[in-house]
Amino acid sequence: SEIVKHAEEALERGEFVRIEHNGRVIEIRNEEALEELRRWVEK
């Protein structure tokens, strides 16, 4: 997914991403959060 790709690229640069999706906000700061995002987006 485009969202996950964006988050992965930001993590590689040492940045973090805040994503709003279906009214929820998730902050991607590490691999664990990235995995959570993947599960969340796939639903």
Rank of each mutant, 00 (worst) to 15 (best):
A10R: 06
H6Q: 14
R29T: 13
S1L: 13
R39F: 08
G14K: 05
H6D: 07
K43P: 05
G14Q: 05
E9D: 09
R18F: 10
E32R: 09
S1K: 13
E2V: 10
S1P: 11
E31K: 15
R39V: 08
E27L: 12
L11I: 07
E32I: 08
F16E: 05
A7V: 08
E35R: 09
V25D: 02
W40H: 04
A7M: 04
G14L: 04
R38W: 03
E32V: 08
E15M: 08
H21T: 06
K5I: 06
A7H: 01
E9T: 08
V4A: 04
L11N: 01
E35C: 10
E31A: 15
E2C: 15
K43V: 11
E8Q: 15
R38G: 01
A33V: 05
L34N: 00
L37K: 00
I28L: 05
E9P: 01
H6K: 14
R18W: 12
I19D: 00
E12T: 12
I28N: 00
K5G: 04
R13L: 05
I19W: 10
W40E: 05
H6G: 07
W40I: 06
R39S: 11
V25A: 05
E36Y: 12
L37T: 00
W40R: 04
E12N: 14
G14H: 06
E42I: 09
F16R: 06
V25L: 08
I19R: 00
L34E: 01
H21I: 15
F16P: 06
E32S: 09
E42T: 12
N22A: 12
N22D: 09
R39G: 07
V41E: 02
W40N: 02
I19K: 00
I26M: 10
E15C: 14
A33G: 12
E36C: 12
A10L: 07
V41H: 04
R38L: 04
E27Y: 14
W40G: 02
A10K: 06
E2A: 12
R38M: 06
R18Q: 08
E2N: 12
V41W: 09
E42R: 09
A10G: 05
R24P: 00
S1T: 11
N30V: 03
R18K: 12
N30H: 06
G23E: 02
R18L: 11
E2S: 13
I19P: 00
L37F: 10
G23V: 00
E12D: 09
A33W: 05
K43S: 12
R29D: 10
I19Q: 01
L11S: 01
H6V: 12
L37A: 02
L34T: 00
L34A: 01
R13Y: 02
N30A: 04
A33Y: 04
G14D: 04
E15A: 08
V25R: 04
R24N: 06
W40K: 02
R24I: 11
I28A: 01
N30C: 09
A7S: 03
K5N: 05
L37S: 00
R39C: 09
V17A: 07
N30Y: 04
V25E: 05
L37P: 00
E20G: 04
A10N: 03
I26S: 01
R13W: 02
E35K: 08
L11G: 01
E8R: 15
I28D: 00
A10Y: 06
E35D: 11
I26Q: 02
A33N: 13
K5Y: 04
R39E: 08
E12W: 13
R18A: 09
R24W: 13
L11C: 07
E36K: 10
I28Q: 00
E36R: 12
L34Y: 01
R13V: 03
A10I: 05
K5A: 08
E42A: 13
E2D: 14
K5S: 06
E27T: 09
N30M: 03
E12P: 02
W40Q: 04
E42C: 15
E2I: 10
L11P: 01
E42Q: 11
R38I: 07
R38D: 00
I26C: 09
L11H: 03
K43C: 11
K5R: 13
R24D: 05
N22K: 11
I3A: 07
H21R: 07
E27D: 10
S1I: 12
E15W: 09
E31S: 12
E2Q: 13
E32N: 08
G23M: 02
G23L: 02
R38P: 00
E8T: 13
E36L: 12
E35S: 08
R38A: 04
I28M: 03
I19G: 00
F16H: 09
H21N: 05
E9A: 14
L11Y: 08
V25W: 12
A10P: 01
S1C: 15
R18G: 03
L11R: 02
E9R: 12
L34Q: 00
K5T: 06
E32Q: 11
V41Y: 09
I26P: 00
L34I: 07
E35G: 07
I28S: 00
I28Y: 01
A7K: 01
A7I: 08
I28H: 00
V41L: 12
E8L: 14
K5D: 03
H21L: 15
R24K: 11
E27K: 05
N22W: 13
V4H: 03
H6I: 15
V17E: 03
R38H: 03
E27F: 14
E32Y: 09
A10C: 13
R18N: 06
R29Q: 08
V41D: 01
V25M: 07
E42K: 10
I28P: 00
E32G: 07
E12R: 15
A7W: 04
E32C: 10
V4L: 15
I19F: 10
I19M: 05
E35I: 08
N30W: 05
L11V: 05
V25S: 05
A10M: 10
H21P: 00
E36V: 10
R38Q: 04
V25P: 02
V41Q: 04
V25K: 04
L34K: 00
L34D: 01
W40V: 05
I3L: 14
L34C: 02
K43E: 13
F16C: 14
K5L: 07
E42L: 13
R18E: 07
R39I: 11
G14R: 04
E27H: 10
N30S: 11
W40L: 09
E12G: 14
E20R: 11
I3M: 10
R29G: 07
A7G: 02
R38T: 03
H21E: 03
L37C: 06
N22I: 06
E15S: 10
V4K: 01
H6S: 10
E12V: 11
V41G: 02
L37D: 00
V17H: 05
E20P: 04
I26R: 02
R13T: 04
A7T: 03
E2R: 09
G23S: 03
L34H: 00
K5M: 06
E9C: 11
G14A: 04
F16A: 07
N30I: 03
R18Y: 09
E9Q: 13
V41A: 06
N30F: 04
E9H: 08
E12L: 15
E27S: 06
H6L: 15
E31I: 14
F16Y: 11
R13I: 04
E36P: 01
R13S: 05
V17R: 03
L34S: 00
E8A: 14
A7P: 02
E20V: 14
G23K: 02
E20N: 08
I28G: 00
E31F: 14
E20A: 08
V4I: 15
I19L: 07
I26L: 11
E2K: 09
R24C: 12
F16W: 12
F16D: 03
H21F: 15
R24H: 09
I3H: 06
V41S: 04
E31Y: 15
L11K: 02
V17N: 03
E36A: 13
E36S: 08
W40S: 03
I26V: 07
H6C: 14
K43Q: 13
V25Y: 09
R29P: 04
V41K: 03
I26F: 15
E32M: 09
E20T: 12
E36G: 06
E15K: 07
G14E: 03
H6A: 14
K5Q: 08
I19C: 08
S1Q: 13
E15H: 08
I28T: 00
E36D: 07
R29L: 12
A33L: 08
E12S: 15
H21W: 15
E12K: 15
F16M: 10
E12Y: 13
E32D: 10
E35P: 00
W40T: 03
A10E: 02
N22P: 00
L37I: 03
V4S: 02
R18I: 15
E12M: 15
L34F: 03
H6N: 09
E12Q: 15
E32P: 04
V4W: 12
E32H: 09
F16S: 08
H6T: 11
L37G: 00
R24T: 07
E42V: 08
H6F: 15
I3G: 03
A7N: 01
E8V: 10
E42N: 10
A7F: 04
E42Y: 12
E2W: 15
N22V: 06
E2M: 13
G23Q: 03
I26N: 01
G14V: 02
E20K: 09
R24L: 12
E31Q: 15
V17C: 13
G14I: 01
E8D: 02
